[in-house]
């Protein structure tokens, strides 16, 4: 027997019960991580780190290409009309951050590919003289600085758009905050910095990336505070939405996994590492990275749960 659905109490009917599953938070996390990799790689390039010196600046673009491909894979899995994905690239719609994002994803690949090419050792390119000559030109000081600048700019665009994408969907009051773009960008920077200082081999580079990560984590805490305050001091819709994180069903997971284990604990550990009171440990950067993923999972899940209250 088939029961006809004439009211809304059905997850198939009511999308506020479920719009996006695991794919979108994973994509937003990987996109933010790649953005962090690009900004930090560009920053190190501009500081004069040349290829062949063991700098992490030339590992990050390779990692970024792999991570972004995985992220785009997750994004593709989320699409319901997969065979029509090419439609995204027949138009650029200025009012749709998702459209900007589609194009940003395509534009960051060549930037990372150029940085990755500069990192390939000369002898590996000996079979392709024209490619080797191009890589040599890229390694020249001015080209590297320019590539660094472009890498920083495209990394910021990638990192910030993921937050603007959600904040433009005004029907979900929890996402309707201008802080979400900067918050996702800084979270991506802290994820990238944590990963970079975890794999860095040069002690000086490791130390500067560690200090950068501490700065990013403190900024992220401040932005989370602004995000909460902004909602609490706005109208009833926003106060109702942010209550999901302040006493509502997402409170424990937000404060324990995002703020506690994802920011405060690694911030304390990394501050002790920076002042040489404890040795370098991978626990702190792994916690930062897990916290970045937890932030996306909580914000996406709580955001789609929040809705415009009646009437």
């Amino acid at each position: 027997m088939l029961e006809l659905v004439t009211t809304r109490h059905n997850p198939l009917v009511d999308p506020s019960l479920h719009i996006w599953g695991w794919e979108i938070p994973v994509y937003l996390f990987l996109g933010g991580w790649v953005a962090g990799c690009m900004v930090l790689s560009g920053w190190l390039m501009r500081r004069g780190r040349a290829p062949g010196q063991g700098s992490v600046a030339y590992v990050l673009p390779w990692v970024g290409i792999v991570l972004l491909s995985l992220g785009m894979g997750a994004l593709f899995l989320d699409l319901e009309h997969k065979l029509y994905v090419w439609r995204m690239y027949l138009t650029l719609r200025p009012t749709s951050p998702m459209s900007w994002g589609g194009w940003i994803l395509i534009l960051v690949y060549p930037v990372m590919a150029l940085a990755a090419l500069a990192a390939i050792p000369r002898d590996l390119l000996s079979g392709w003289p024209s490619l080797a000559a191009f890589a040599e030109r890229l390694r020249a000081g001015r080209s590297l600085r320019l590539l660094g600048t472009v890498s920083i700019a495209s990394g910021i665009a990638l990192g910030i758009y993921t937050g603007i994408l959600l904040s433009s969907l005004g029907a979900r009051p929890l996402w309707a905050s201008a802080v979400l773009g900067p918050l996702f960008l800084v979270s991506g920077l802290s994820t990238g910095a944590a990963f970079a200082h975890m794999i860095a081999r040069d002690p000086e580079e490791e130390s500067s990336l560690l200090r950068a990560d501490i700065l990013f984590l403190v900024t992220e805490l401040a932005l989370i505070a602004l995000f909460l305050i902004g909602h609490l001091t706005s109208g009833a819709q926003h106060a109702h939405a942010v209550a999901l994180l302040l006493g509502g069903p997402y409170t424990a997971v937000f404060w324990v996994f995002v703020v506690g284990l994802g920011i405060v604990v690694p911030l304390v550990i990394q501050s002790l590492m920076a002042s040489h009171r404890i040795g370098h440990t991978v626990i702190a950067p792994l916690l930062v990275m897990a916290g970045g993923l937890a932030l996306r999972i909580v914000i996406v899940a709580a955001g789609q749960y929040s809705h415009w209250i009646v009437p």
Partner: peptide, 11 residues
């Protein structure tokens, strides 16, 4: 393409 942005955008 089934991205569901419109589902999230509709109040």
């Amino acid at each position: 393409i089934g991205c569901k942005a419109c589902l999230a955008a509709c109040p």
